[in-house]
Structure formats: C-alpha cells, structure tokens
C-alpha cells in the first residue's frame, strides 16, 4: 500500500521532471542508479546474512533466549538479540506477540523491539560508509542504551514494575 504510494509519487514526479527538462531527468536517473550501485555489494551481502540469520534464529530460538529468563537479565539478553539481528517488522511483531504468549514480559519485548529497530550491528559497515565511524558507533551505542530506558518505561506503564 505504502510502496504503491511511493511508486505513484516517484513516477509522477519523474514524468513532471521529464516534461520540464529531459537532460536533468536523465542526470537524476543516473544519480539514482549510482547511489543504488554504491550500496549494492553490501546490500546483497546483508540480504544473504539476514536469510541465514532467520534460518538459525527462528521464533523458537528467540523465545528460548528471551522467554526463559525475566527481569533485567532477560531484558539485557532481549536487547542484545535485538541489536544483532535484522528482522523485518512484519516478522518481528508477530514474533514479539508469540514471545508474550510464551511467557516473556513486556519489558523484555520493549527492549527487543526497540533495539531491533534502532540498533543495527549488521548494517554498521554500511552506516560507517555514509556517516563515519564516530557517528555510527555513538548512534548505535546510544540507541542500545536507550532501549533499556524504553524497557523501563514500558515495564512501568504495563504494570510490571
């Protein structure tokens, strides 16, 4: 649905651009391709890595890692698992719901979901290419720490603390 909107938007603007200036449109498409080509090698590697990861880290494995231990220890494990895995949202949220049913607490799920989305250990080499080492490390470390703050808040709101 959202992807469709993006295609319509991109297609519309591209046509508009073409009507106004063919040369500029050609240049913009060249730039688009160059930007894509620039990140393609790492992207393809990451797609494979995610495949291998999901084959090994299925919901059962994650559940045994996060679901079994609760408290801060469980939260820490959840945050670490979230930080190193790269799982698309449409798999992550149902997995998180399954974990809840399997006995994991909201705090652990909060840490898992937050670090999963904000921390990207797997994509760090890519991030370094665009943002430099310092910024990448600072952002990922801070986001990791922040996922504990989110867990704490979620724990309070959901009445676990």
């Amino acid at each position: 649905m959202q992807t469709a909107i993006f295609y319509i938007l991109a297609g519309g603007l591209l046509s508009l651009s073409y009507i106004n200036d063919k040369g500029k449109t050609k240049k913009s498409l060249k730039k688009a391709w160059k930007a894509l080509e620039n990140m393609l090698p790492q992207l393809l590697g990451i797609v494979l890595l995610v495949g291998v990861m999901l084959a090994i880290m299925n919901p059962d494995t994650i559940s045994s890692l996060i679901g079994s231990s609760s408290g801060w220890m469980g939260t820490a494990i959840a945050a670490i698992v979230g930080a190193i895995t790269l799982i698309p949202g449409f798999i992550a949220f149902p997995t998180a719901a399954l974990l809840l049913q399997g006995g994991a607490g909201y705090m652990q799920i909060g840490a898992f979901v937050s670090s999963l989305m904000m921390v990207g250990v797997v994509t760090m080499p890519m991030e370094v290419k665009y943002f430099g080492k310092k910024s990448t490390i600072a952002r990922n470390v801070l986001a990791f720490v922040y996922s504990f703050a989110v867990a704490l808040l979620i724990g309070k709101v959901m009445g676990e603390l």
Binding site: T3, F6, Y7, L9, A10, G11, L13, L14, S17, K24, T25, K27, S28, L29, K30, K31, A32, W33, A35, L36, L43, V47, L48, V50, G51, V52, L54, A55, N58, P88
Partner: peptide
C-alpha cells in the same frame, strides 16, 4: 529456509528501493 528468506528479502528490496532511489535522484537534481 535461508534461501527462502533471502529470496523474500530480495523481493522486498527490489520492490521498495526503486522509488526511493528515483526520488533521491530527483531531489538531488
């Protein structure tokens, strides 16, 4: 399973990325 998931993410990548990069090129120019 790994191959299945890879093909799946690859399809996601192929479907999501083109408009993003086209918009990026247009923005740049």
């Amino acid at each position: 399973k790994a191959v299945d998931m890879t093909l799946f993410s690859f399809k996601e990548m192929i479907s999501v990325l083109p408009p993003i990069f086209i918009l990026l090129g247009l923005l740049d120019v």
